[in-house]
């Protein structure tokens, strides 16, 4: 179980945004992505997760082990907290384990409809999804948006103890210090050159 990225170039809207991104993560490693808005953090994470094709380069991690999470986390307002989590657990062939509810402080909310939760509670529910799907390689896009300091710490603890501690890997785009001892990868040097090759319009220029 390891994540291996070599010379990856990614495009947004048909234009190359990042080129030559390379890094390696061993089990238990986390990597924090930094860079100004628009540098391509989301694009890179989506490409890593296989949601969009990269322009060139390699992404290598065991099949069926990656998961992507962004601020839109597929929570259905009409379903209760446990129903939402049970659904994602079942789709991934697992069952909902009550410890996840404890880890994300959702025990008291378990039968509430997700639509009645506050923004922060919804985020916790969205992040709790990561605990039930049993995926080892997580690609997280600003996971802590609208979380208070206490919840951020709770999430960081879960990530450190229950995910990375169990041999998981996480690539995280975030502006907040999660308190993980993880290397930071600044994406600014990888910004694609003005005339970088591989865009969908290339044939027309």
């Amino acid at each position: 179980m390891s994540l291996h990225v070599k010379d990856l170039s990614v495009a947004r809207g048909g234009r190359p945004v990042l080129q030559g991104v390379s890094f390696d993560c061993a089990p238990g490693d986390a990597l924090i992505l930094r860079g100004p808005n628009g540098i391509g953090k989301t694009t890179l994470l989506r490409t890593l997760a296989g949601l969009q094709p990269g322009l060139s380069g390699e992404v290598d991690f065991p099949e069926e082990s990656g998961a992507y999470a962004s601020h839109a986390d597929g929570i259905k307002a009409q379903l209760s907290v446990t129903e939402n989590l049970t659904f994602w657990a079942e789709v991934h062939g697992g069952v909902l384990d009550d410890t996840v509810l404890e880890d994300f402080d959702l025990v008291d909310l378990r039968d509430r409809l997700a639509g009645t939760l506050s923004a922060g509670q919804k985020r916790r529910l969205g992040l709790a999804r990561l605990g039930v799907i049993g995926r080892k390689v997580l690609f997280l896009d600003e996971p802590t948006v609208s979380l208070d300091g206490f919840s951020v710490k709770m999430f960081a603890d879960w990530l450190r103890d229950k995910h990375l501690g169990q041999g998981g890997i996480a690539v995280i785009a975030t502006h907040i210090d999660l308190g993980l001892e993880a290397p930071v990868l600044d994406l600014t040097p990888y910004k694609a050159a003005q005339d970088a090759a591989g865009g969908s319009d290339e044939a027309f220029l």
Partner: peptide, 16 residues
């Protein structure tokens, strides 16, 4: 609805 709340990309990366 699944597109709006982001379920679709999550389903796309699921084993289904």
């Amino acid at each position: 609805l699944d597109h709006e709340d982001g379920s679709l990309p999550l389903l796309a990366t699921s084993p289904l």
